[in-house]
């Protein structure tokens, strides 16, 4: 029947609309699950845009007294990133960690790694991949201990570049820097 064909077309249109709307929402996990923390006074929020990262090439790296190979690895990785979002709080880190774990949709984010170390600190890496080798978003959650940290790296992240960077950081024995960047 002709009319039923039209009905089917209309339904397909609607379905397609929903699909395309979902495809458009390529925002970070923070936009999605932690928006209310942004306005929360207890949180420090830092955002590095891809525009700023594209300016790394013009920086006077030598004056920053850094390892060349390390800088190179950072730049390599930063060139693939579309943004870094960081949320830090020092109040009730355990509670925030639990809350965050409940919020994240595990159908969308795959758990890459969970660690609970001797300092009673929970670490969880979550990734959203695009079905290929690249990762669309890498989300790091650190909770317990002294602070709750959420870091979201959005872009087309190549895991191989991350392991290169790990090796570089591993070479010099400097202690890993914490986020002290209060605004």
């Amino acid at each position: 029947m002709k009319s039923s064909k039209w009905i089917l077309t209309a339904l397909m249109l609607g379905f397609f609309g929903i699909l395309s709307a979902q495809a458009q929402s390529t925002t970070s996990a923070i936009d999605k699950y932690f928006q209310q923390y942004l306005e929360d006074e207890r949180f420090t929020v830092v955002y590095v845009s891809s525009k700023l990262m594209s300016m790394f090439g013009k920086l006077d790296i030598e004056s920053m007294e850094m390892d060349d190979a390390e800088t190179k690895a950072i730049m390599e990785l930063a060139s693939d990133l579309k943004g870094i979002r960081i949320l830090v709080t020092e109040e009730t880190p355990n509670q925030f960690y639990k809350e965050a774990k409940q919020k994240i949709d595990t159908r969308e984010y795959e758990i890459l790694m969970t660690v609970r170390n001797k300092d009673e600190e929970n670490v969880e890496f979550l990734v959203k991949d695009n079905g290929e080798d690249l990762i669309e978003e890498l989300l790091l959650m650190v909770g317990g201990g002294e602070q709750f940290v959420l870091m979201s790296f959005v872009g087309n992240i190549d895991m191989n570049k991350i392991s290169t960077l790990i090796n570089e950081f591993d070479d010099d024995k400097e202690a890993p820097g914490e986020q002290q960047n209060k605004q």
Partner: peptide
């Protein structure tokens, strides 16, 4: 929430990646 200068952005990026690295 955006950091203001590329220098600062680099510092944040470096420190963020360092955290990722150490946690991994």
């Amino acid at each position: 929430y955006e950091v203001k200068t590329p220098e600062e952005a680099f510092r944040v990026t470096r420190s963020a990646l360092r955290t990722v690295s150490s946690k991994l």
